[in-house]
Structures are given as C-alpha cells and as structure tokens.
Nucleic acid binder design. Structure first.
Lengths: 159, 159
DNA sequence: CGACTGTTGCTGTCGCGACAGCTATTTGGG
DNA sequence: CCCAAATAGCTGTCGCGACAGCAACAGTCG
C-alpha cells in the first residue's frame, strides 16, 4: 500500500485516470450519475440539487445553513438554490421567529405535491448505477469512497 | 444484489448517500479531490482543468474537439477553457493548415515551462487520495467505477 | 458549378461550486 | 448598557458542465 505514496512505481504514463482534473474517472462517474438523475427528473422540472433539497426540507424544516453541507454546497450556493426554488414556487423562505437572522425553508403545496415522486427517482438511479453489484461490493465501494474522503480531508494530519 | 433493484428494502431513510444529487458521496469525493489538486496547483495559477489540458496538449498537439471528451467537457467548454489559457499566455490557437475549421492547440514557452511541474502534482494527489489502499483495492475500485460508468451509459454500446 | 450534409468551433444561457466581502442580527464581555 | 465578536444570510466574481443555436468550412453529389 505504501508504494502508492512513492511516485516511482508505474504511475507515470497515463496513471492519473483516477485523478486527472475533473475529467477524472471519479468525476466522470459523478457527473454522468447526476446527468442520469436529471434525465429522470426532467418531467418535474427540477435539477438533482433542487430535488435533493426538497427531499431534505420536506422531511424536516431546516435552515439553509444546516442543509448546505448535506447538499455539497455553501450558504452562498444555498441562497441561489433557494432563489430558483422560490421562483418555481416549490419553496418559501420564512424568518425564524426566535432568531431573525435565520431562515426556515418551507416547502409549498406545489413542492409537497412532487416530493413523493422524487424519492423513487433516486432509487431508480441507484439501481441503474449499481446494477450487477452485490451488496458486499456496494459496502466495499462505499467504504472506499469514505476512506478517500477521509484521506482528502484528514490526510492533512500527515502532510 | 437484486434487492438493489427493488426500492423496498431499506433505502427509504437516507439510503441515497451514494446517489443523492451532487451532494452524493461520489460527487463529494470527486469535488474534494479536485479541490485538493487545485490547492497543490495554486502556485502555478492554473486550475485542474487547465493543468489537465496542458498535460495532454504538451504530449501531443491536438484539436479541441479531440481533447474535449478526455477533459470531461464539450467543444463549448473547450472554447472557453482555451480562452482562459490564452489569456494566461500558456497556450495559443493556430488554424490547421489543411482544414481551416480546425484549431491546433499550441503550448507556448510559458506553458511548456510549467508543464513538467504539473505532472507530479497529480501523482501527489493520487497518493493522498489512495493512501492506505492496496494495489488490489485500487484495481477493484477502478473496475467498479468503470462498471458504473457502463451502467450509466447503457452498457449496450459499451465503452 | 451549386446545393446538401456533416464537422468544427464560437456564442448565449442556465445551473452549480468556491471564495471574498457585506449587512443584519444575536450574543457575550466590559 | 454599549460595544465587539460571532453567526446567518445575501451579493459579486470566477471557473466549469450542459445545451441550443450559429457561422465557417470541407467533402459529396447532382
């Protein structure tokens, strides 16, 4: 496992397929996955981000600040995501009564109407993505992804 | 493995971690990887895309049309990527002598100067990403990613 | 020759992630 | 009590991926 930390074992040719820019295999799968989800989502006129937010927000009212990390964005991204969802009438912003800095995301009736149809889409996409994978493989894959995440975040402990 | 195709086994709570929007685990790892690469790339004032293009173009002069898929973008994205690289003076556009529609990407002296220092960055990022992974695991991971890619594309036309 | 078709690249528009800077509000210390 | 720091959200800017539409050019066929 350590030879990976040593750049001299065979990674010099075109070894970076896993890592090269956003054309990397990792990013490629991620992007195509998103595309696939959004194709399934097209009838509802929402993107995968918007659908994800709706699913989270419908389950429990929360503040943008709380949802941001779960959606893989920051508060700035949340602001504009909420703008778009408000434009579509799927969500409304309310001020938190006890803390007027905070916003409570409220799913409108129109939003609630489509939420139940959104969840199956993710199930379908998951099924497509993982077709032919055993449960053990999925577990392994998930574990590897989490280890990589840890390496990227915490590996700083070593460097 | 088949229950994955059946949405009724336990995926209703927060099962979509692998798949949910661009906050999905897959996209998260991809994004953080890109961030990590770009942190290492900061001294050179290029993004991971730009570095990837430089590496490809320096190895062999090519047209935007050819590089686009390798960089995970399309010709429109290439146009603007090249605009930015031209602004930085790292690349120049030339018309192909035999086909005046085509553009040949030429890496300038300034570009050639930094290219040799770009490659190690990807090696370093790879090492960080895969710290603690055995070669077998890397192979397995790569295989799974490719299978997923095939699943998403329709597997029919293959790769 | 001139129209037809396909390719190549450019431009516009939208959605999104990252960062920096700003305002309003809350909170805690003096 | 008032002021400073922290917190929540908004706005601007940049880079990037996807799509649609356009113009220029190449090769083909009538």
């Amino acid at each position: 496992m350590e030879n990976l930390e040593n750049p001299g074992h065979g990674m010099s040719a075109v070894p970076f397929a896993l890592v090269l820019g956003s054309g990397s295999l990792l990013n490629q799968v991620g992007r195509e996955l998103r595309t696939a989800v959004e194709t399934l989502l097209a009838p509802f006129d929402v993107t995968s981000q918007q659908a994800a937010l709706l699913l989270h927000a419908a389950r429990q009212e929360a503040s943008p600040n709380q949802l941001a990390p779960q959606l893989g964005t920051d508060t700035a991204g949340m602001t504009r995501l909420l703008d778009r969802l408000e434009d579509k009438g799927l969500v409304r912003r309310r001020r938190h009564p006890d803390d007027r800095r905070s916003v409570v995301i409220e799913v409108t009736a129109a939003g609630k109407a489509i939420v139940p149809r959104l969840a199956p889409v993710f199930g379908k996409a998951t099924a497509q993505l993982l077709a032919g994978f055993s449960e053990a493989e999925v577990r392994e894959l998930t574990g590897m992804l989490q280890r990589m995440l840890g390496n990227l975040r915490g590996a700083a402990t070593g460097s």
